[in-house]
C-alpha cells in the first residue's frame, strides 16, 4: 500500500499518526481512503464543493502532482505520498 505523510497540524485527526497507509491506484483514491479512515479530516482538506482546499499540496516523492496528472496520478505499492500545506493569510485592506 502507498503511505501518506501527514503534516503536524492534521495529526490530531489521525490519532497522532505521522504516516497513514492508504488504498487506491491514484492520488485521488488515496485521499478518499484517508478521509474514509479519518472522516474528520474531510472538512479540513475539502471545501463545500468537494474540491481540495487551496493550501493542500500533494507530492509523490519529490514531484508535485500538479506537474504530473493531478489527482489521477498513479500510485504503486510502496510509493510515498506527502501532504504538505502552504500557509497564507493577510489583513483586510
Amino acid at each position: 500500500m502507498p503511505a501518506l505523510k501527514i503534516p503536524t497540524p492534521l495529526r490530531t485527526y489521525t490519532n497522532g499518526l505521522a504516516e497513514v497507509l492508504v488504498q487506491g491506484v491514484t492520488v485521488g483514491d488515496a485521499m478518499q481512503s484517508l478521509v474514509a479512515q479519518f472522516p474528520t479530516m474531510r472538512q479540513y482538506l475539502y471545501n463545500g464543493e468537494g474540491q481540495l482546499r487551496p493550501f493542500v499540496n500533494l507530492f509523490v516523492g519529490e514531484n508535485n502532482i500538479k506537474d504530473l496528472q493531478g489527482l489521477e496520478t498513479p500510485l504503486s505499492d510502496g510509493d510515498k505520498l506527502l501532504l504538505i500545506p502552504s500557509i497564507a493569510g493577510g489583513c483586510d485592506a
Binding site: T12, G89, D92
Partner: peptide
C-alpha cells in the same frame, strides 16, 4: 505561524480564516 498586519489590527481577517490550518 506568526505574521504581521502592517497598519491594521492584530485580528484575523476572513482571508486568514479561509487559509487557516487546524491546531496551529
Amino acid at each position: 505561524i506568526f505574521h504581521s498586519h502592517p497598519d491594521h489590527p492584530n485580528r484575523p481577517s476572513e482571508f486568514d480564516r479561509e487559509w487557516a490550518m487546524p491546531w496551529f
